[in-house]
Amino acid sequence: MTRSDSTAASPREGNPYANVLVTTPKLADDPRIARLSKLLTSPEVAKFIREHYQGSVIPVDN
């Protein structure tokens, strides 16, 4: 399967598949988890994803 095939097979709207950041209740308030969450949803990471995955991965837009 090529990147374009996977993009066509997984439309953005209504797509039930997503990567999420999950932690344990014990680590929910850990500053490292908060920092990771902030970085994963940053404009810089979104730009990296768009440039390197060319539509086969869609970043979170904040």
Results as ranks from 00 to 15, higher is better:
Pro11Ala: 14
Thr23Pro: 00
Val20Tyr: 09
Lys26Val: 14
Leu39Gln: 10
Arg32Trp: 07
Asp29Cys: 00
Ser37Tyr: 04
Leu36Gly: 03
Ser10Ile: 04
Asn62Val: 04
Pro25Tyr: 04
Arg35Ala: 15
Asp5Trp: 08
Asp61Met: 12
His52Ile: 00
Tyr53Met: 04
Tyr53Glu: 08
Gly55Asn: 07
Ser10Cys: 08
Arg3Met: 10
Asp5Lys: 07
Arg12Gln: 09
Asp61Tyr: 08
Ser56Cys: 05
Val60Trp: 10
Leu21Thr: 13
Arg32Thr: 13
Arg32Tyr: 08
Arg3Ala: 15
Leu36Met: 14
Val20Trp: 06
Pro11Gly: 11
Glu13Gly: 11
Arg3Ser: 12
Gln54Lys: 14
Thr23Asn: 02
Pro11His: 12
Ala18Leu: 11
Arg3His: 08
Ser37Gln: 05
Lys26Ser: 08
Val60Phe: 15
Ala28Leu: 14
Arg32Ala: 15
Ile49Gln: 01
Thr23Gln: 01
Ser42Phe: 11
Ala8Pro: 04
Pro59Asn: 03
Ser37Asn: 12
Ser56Gln: 06
Thr23His: 02
Ile49Pro: 01
Val45Trp: 03
Val45Gly: 01
Lys38Phe: 06
Thr23Ser: 13
Leu36Gln: 12
Ala8Cys: 08
Asp29Arg: 03
Arg32Ser: 13
Thr7Pro: 01
Ala46Met: 06
Val57Arg: 03
Ser42Gln: 10
Arg32Asn: 10
Ser4Leu: 09
Ser56Trp: 08
Ile49Arg: 02
Thr24Asn: 01
Leu40Glu: 03
Leu36Lys: 06
Ile49Ala: 00
Lys47Gln: 15
Leu36Thr: 14
Ser10His: 15
Val45Cys: 03
Glu44Pro: 02
Phe48Cys: 02
Val57Ser: 00
Ser42Leu: 12
Ser37Met: 02
Ala28Ile: 15
Val60Cys: 06
Ser4Thr: 11
Ile49Asn: 01
Gly55Val: 08
Val60Asn: 06
Pro25Ser: 07
Ser42Arg: 10
Glu51Arg: 14
Ala28Tyr: 09
Glu51Val: 06
Val22Lys: 11
Pro31Ala: 13
Val20Arg: 08
Thr23Phe: 01
Val60Tyr: 13
Asp29Tyr: 02
Val20Ile: 13
Leu27Lys: 13
Val57Thr: 07
Ser37His: 12
Asp5Val: 13
Ala46His: 06
Val57Phe: 10
Ala8Gly: 12
Ala9Cys: 05
Thr23Asp: 03
Leu40Met: 15
Asp29Gln: 11
Val20Asp: 04
Val22Gln: 07
Gln54Asp: 07
Ile58Leu: 11
Pro31Lys: 08
Ala34Cys: 02
Asp5Glu: 14
Ala18Thr: 10
Asn62Tyr: 09
Asn19Tyr: 14
Leu40Thr: 03
Ala46Gln: 03
Thr24His: 01
Ile49His: 03
Leu40Lys: 06
Ile58His: 05
Glu44Trp: 05
Val22Thr: 11
Glu44Cys: 00
Arg35Tyr: 06
